[in-house]
């Protein structure tokens, strides 16, 4: 149930704001992020647990979780 609620949240990135520091990539517990051309890229949305640690430590406010607006 909790997992289902979590999955309703979307992981979003803002390319224009990302400076490619790699903090989110280094501290993602399930390693679903990587840098591509110095910008963050989500490798696997299904594997992401929506823990929010990327959002917590992103210095550029460029990655975040948001409730799905379409549901």
């Amino acid at each position: 149930m909790e997992q289902e609620q979590k999955k309703k949240k979307n992981l979003k990135t803002i390319r224009e704001w990302c400076k490619g520091c790699g903090i989110c990539v280094a501290f993602c517990p399930v390693k679903v992020l990587e840098l591509e051309n110095e910008k963050v890229k989500v490798l696997d949305y299904d594997k992401c647990t929506r823990c929010g640690l990327c959002e917590l430590r992103c210095p550029d406010l460029a990655i975040y979780l948001e409730e799905d607006q379409n549901e």
Binding site: W17, L61, E66
Partner: peptide
């Protein structure tokens, strides 16, 4: 930006000037 950014930041001023990382 995230809901927090939209609520509490002047997002037209972002991205900020601080260095990467």
């Amino acid at each position: 930006g995230s809901p927090i950014v939209k609520e509490y930041f002047r997002s037209d001023r972002l991205p900020h000037i601080w260095c990467p990382g």
